[in-house]
Structures are given as structure tokens and as C-alpha cells.
Design a protein around this nucleic acid. Sequence first.
DNA 1: TTACGTGCAAATAATTTGCAGTCCC
DNA 2: GGGACTGCAAATTATTTGCACGTAA
Lengths: 161, 161
Amino acid sequence: MTAQRVKTQNPQALTAQGRLDALMAGCPVHSLRSKLKQSGLRPTRQRMALGLLLFSKGDRHLTAEKLFEEAQELRVPVSLATVYNGLHVFTQAGLLREVAVDGSKVYYDTNVSNHHHFIIQGSNTLIDIPALDIDRGIIPEPPEGMEIAGIDVVIRLRAKS
Amino acid sequence: MTAQRVKTQNPQALTAQGRLDALMAGCPVHSLRSKLKQSGLRPTRQRMALGLLLFSKGDRHLTAEKLFEEAQELRVPVSLATVYNGLHVFTQAGLLREVAVDGSKVYYDTNVSNHHHFIIQGSNTLIDIPALDIDRGIIPEPPEGMEIAGIDVVIRLRAKS
DNA sequence: TTACGTGCAAATAATTTGCAGTCCC
DNA sequence: GGGACTGCAAATTATTTGCACGTAA
């Protein structure tokens, strides 16, 4: 192995892979590849394609069907079953968050930070709401011409570890 | 402050009308009947039976399938399609509230006042949370041995009338 | 009477699964 | 090479719909 072993606060910068990652930090392809590897997921052709569709356009709210359509439009060969599979493993890895909107389809949010949502009845559009507002009991103003039809708060519980 | 009880007999020994009567005994049958009429809904045999199952046991959280099972256990003749139909018209009439829990099934809450929910991961159990707490930015303590896995806030919007 | 409701079975919609074949490490 | 991943099609689950028949007003 290499002889240069200097301790710093960023050990990753000292390995060959780390230097490579740093160089490629601006490249969405390579940053996605290492994100997947860090999560123990093989960066397969299909997962890379889905990951790029999901994560290289800012925060997005997508259904499985919608993501599948986007892949098809771009002539990326991926099956619907693999889209579902990919969304599940991405979610498990903490790269996506499922949003409970209604009883029909599941939405995936590429913004995994703490925040909430408006949903416009009829059109199935999600709009982010910063968490702080609601956590302080402040209900934000609806967009122009819209009014609040209802508020759903669901706190999911699990057995303490 | 317990409600007047009617002596229960073997439900199978009764006629359909008799079982319906047993179900109605001690229950606000007429208030349900007028509630339905006020909403422009015909108080049919099936809707009365479903309404009594829903509204005569305090606040409940039910799925269509669960309500159907309860009707079957009490030998109340009603089809699954009619259960779905009934839940929809009751919801439109403001007698029920749909709760967005996850992407699979729809829950119906007989408590239509402003409040929120815990859901216990794994078991599909809903627990009411008074609205005031959350509307003031106070997240209530989870039950013993449970911890918060996540919070979903969805504000549903509609076009201003 | 007659429009609204109901029951049945078939149709949808979203998602999952079984398994043979493929690809990454 | 071997286990992880993918694709296809069939299976499942939750819900809706079409239509003939029933029933409350």
C-alpha cells in the first residue's frame, strides 16, 4: 500500500478513490456512482440512468409511472419492474422519501430533508413547504387563488430500538 | 355514563330485519336517518346498517374491507361495491373523513373534527392526536416504547370558490 | 312511477412476485 | 464465477364500473 498516511479531518481525500471523487465532484455521473456505492448498491446501468433522472434536476416529486415515462422518452431501456425496484432501494438508502398523498399512488420526493407539502386537489402537483413554518405552528399562505381544503398530519411510529 | 345496552342473542337465529333491528336498538337511528336525508341521501337499508356500524361505537378508523367484514360477521347483507359506494357518499356528505396513511389502502375516520394521527408502523393502527397540540407546533409524546419514524404533513388545496 | 341504489362480475390501476437470463465485482 | 440485478409476464391488492334488477319517495 501507499506510504503517505497523514491523518487529516478528511481521510477520504487521501485515498486514490477519494482524490478521484474530489476531481469528479462536479460530474453528476460520478457523484451518483459513489453515492450508490456508499449505500452498498451496485451502480448498474439502470440505476445510474434512474438516479440521473431523479437527482440532476433539483428537487422533484415523481411517481413510478412518471419516472418510467421519462426514461422511455429518453430511450433509456429500463423495465417498469426495475423502476419500482430502484425507487424502493433508493428509498431504503435514504436517497428518496415516500410521500403519503392519497390512497392511490405513491410519490417519491428527491428532497429528503425535513419539510412538508401542499398538494393541489385535482392536478396531482406537490409543492414543498419548509418544515420550520409548520413546526412552529405557522400554516403558510396558500398560493394565489387557492384555499386550504384540509390538512393531514400523520406521525409514523416504530418500536424503540 | 354507559349507553343503554340491549341483550345480545345469537345473530344467526334472527331474520335479516330482526338483526337490523337489534343493531338499531339503542342507537341514534333517527338522527342518522335525518342526517342522511339532510345530505340528500336516501336512508336505504344498506346505508343505515353501514352508518350504524360506523357511528355507534365512538370514533373509529376503518378501511372498506374491514367495514365489509364487520357487516358480514353481523350477517348484514351488503355487497363490497355498496360498502365502497357508501363510504364515498358519506365522505362527500361530511360524515366521514379520508385519511392518507400510505400508498396502499384508504382509511376512513368517523371523527371529522380537526385532529391528526399517529400510525404505528407494521400494525395498521391509527391513534388520534388532538389538533391543538400540533397546530401550536407541539409534537405530542409517542406512546410507551415507540419513537417517531417520520412526520407527514400534507395540506390539500383547492381553487377558491 | 321513476330516479336513485344495489349486487354481481368483469375491468382497472398500481404494485409485487417468480424465475430465467444478465451483468458487476 | 457467483451473487446481485433485470426483464418479462403473471399474480395480487384495492378499487371502480357497467348494467340488470330492486326499492324508497
